[in-house]
């Protein structure tokens, strides 16, 4: 689809952004400081072989 922006301004979407090492650092900092509150999902994702985890019995008793 055409990426015609609803915003004013000139940019060319068809040309991918060229990222140098310095720009990458800038992007990282920007994302971590400004976007953390907004762009993340609604929950964490941790890679696990088994998607359900139960505490070992002793730990469960400690928590009760």
């Amino acid at each position: 689809m055409s990426k015609k922006s609803i915003l004013k301004g000139n940019y060319t979407v068809a040309n991918p952004v060229r990222v140098t090492k310095d720009e990458e650092t800038t992007l990282t900092e920007k994302m971590q400081t400004a976007a953390a509150r907004a762009l993340g999902g609604s929950a964490c994702y941790i890679k696990k072989a088994n998607p359900v985890w139960r505490p070992p019995k002793k730990e469960k008793q400690d928590g009760e």
Binding site: M31, Q32, A36, R37, A38, L39, G40, G41, C44, Y45
Partner: peptide, 10 residues
Amino acid sequence: FVSKLTADKV
């Protein structure tokens, strides 16, 4: 970056 951002957020 979204994985880390999500952890920071939630």
